[in-house]
């Protein structure tokens, strides 16, 4: 069995639905950057879009774009990871309820506050009756969705899947997380830059230039456990840790968090080339989806022809860790 990446699409703080970030990156350094939107009318008519928050419009746009670029018209599964779900609508309902009282609350905000609105709106849009699931677990939400998709292939339940990672960041929620010191305090200072993420991947068992060779999520792993899981993931693909040519690390600028990446790379990959993506795309709960996007693009390009196996490694507060192994075919 093989799981192959057929296509992908992104909307983020770089130019949407394209790979211009490679040659003409939009440079940011402020603590909080909103995504660059595309023209959603090309995807959704205004009447259908009337209740959709930003996260839903983005998810539909990237899903449709990725599907069009693939041979898959109707995926067997739609699986989404989202750390906060539809936080814009959640905030609207919560804020109206706590500030103005329980009397005149609007149902549309509630309906579209639910995390799985994303997967279900995509399914409704595609009229896709297949397996549908949504993961919401902090910094490993997307990787949980990816792992589920991987197992759908392993168990023979699916031959194709649309997997997404979506998080929007509202000014209100940015400010709340800022109180917990999630973000850098000023441009140029230390700390992470908050971004927004909407990425879709089309996976299928048809051979393509890049294979999804493995995905692992780990909870508070010790160094030994990390070693065991990393080794096991490589062995299942018939390679060893030494065969991994480059690491995409989730370095965000957060000093404590980045130390974990230093330790990981120092222990397992002291002499391997390292790439990062959060400087261009910012931090979000589903930012690892962007890491996989960037790694997949690089493997497809001819800029690093010697790369064969690459690893995307990310952690969230040193509790939730993830490994995504991609291989050039």
């Amino acid at each position: 069995m093989g799981v192959f990446i057929q296509s992908s699409a992104q909307i983020s703080i770089q130019e949407p639905l394209c790979n211009n970030y490679v040659t003409k990156p939009v440079l940011h350094d402020e603590p909080y950057v909103r995504a660059i939107e595309c023209d959603y009318k090309a995807f959704i008519d205004p009447i259908s879009a009337r209740r959709m928050g930003k996260i839903l419009k983005r998810a539909i746009a990237v899903s449709v774009t990725a599907l069009k670029a693939s041979n898959v018209t109707m995926p067997d599964a739609v699986i989404t990871g989202t750390g906060l779900g539809c936080i814009e609508n959640t905030e609207k309902f919560l804020s109206a309820m706590t500030m103005e009282g329980e009397e005149f609350l609007q149902p549309a905000f509630f309906i579209n506050s639910t995390h799985n609105t994303i997967s279900s709106q995509v399914a409704i849009y595609l009229k896709c009756h297949g397996y549908n699931n949504t993961y919401s677990h902090r910094g490993i939400s997307f990787e949980s969705a990816l792992m589920d998709a991987f197992m759908q292939f392993e168990t023979g339940s699916a031959a194709s899947a649309l997997v997404g990672g979506d998080d929007e960041m509202t000014p209100g929620y940015f400010a709340l997380l800022d109180k917990l010191n999630y973000w850098k305090k000023s441009a140029g200072g230390p700390g992470a830059m908050a971004g927004e993420t909407a990425v879709a991947f089309v996976l299928s068992n048809e051979v393509s230039p890049v294979e999804l060779s493995g995905v692992e999520i780990l909870f508070k792993p010790t160094a030994d456990e990390m070693n065991r899981r990393l080794t096991a993931m490589c062995e299942r693909r018939g390679i060893s840790i030494g065969d991994i040519d480059a690491i995409f690390v989730g370095r965000s600028g957060d000093v404590d968090g980045d130390r974990i990446y230093d330790a990981f790379c120092g222990k397992f990959f002291p002499d391997r080339e390292q790439f990062t993506w959060k400087k261009l795309f910012g931090e979000s709960f589903t930012s690892p989806a962007m890491g996989m996007y960037v790694a997949d693009e690089l493997l497809r390009s001819d800029r690093k022809p010697l790369l064969k196996h690459v690893l995307v490694y990310n952690h969230f507060q040193n509790k939730d860790h993830s490994l995504i192994l991609l291989s050039k075919c």
Binding site: L84, H115, T134, Y135, S136, H137, I140, L218, F219, K220
Partner: peptide, 24 residues
Amino acid sequence: DCGTCSEMTAERYGKFDIMTTIST
């Protein structure tokens, strides 16, 4: 967030190799 609730539920029971949260 949903994930934090799962972690708070389970952490006292020791080591879990895989932990995640479904929200459908």
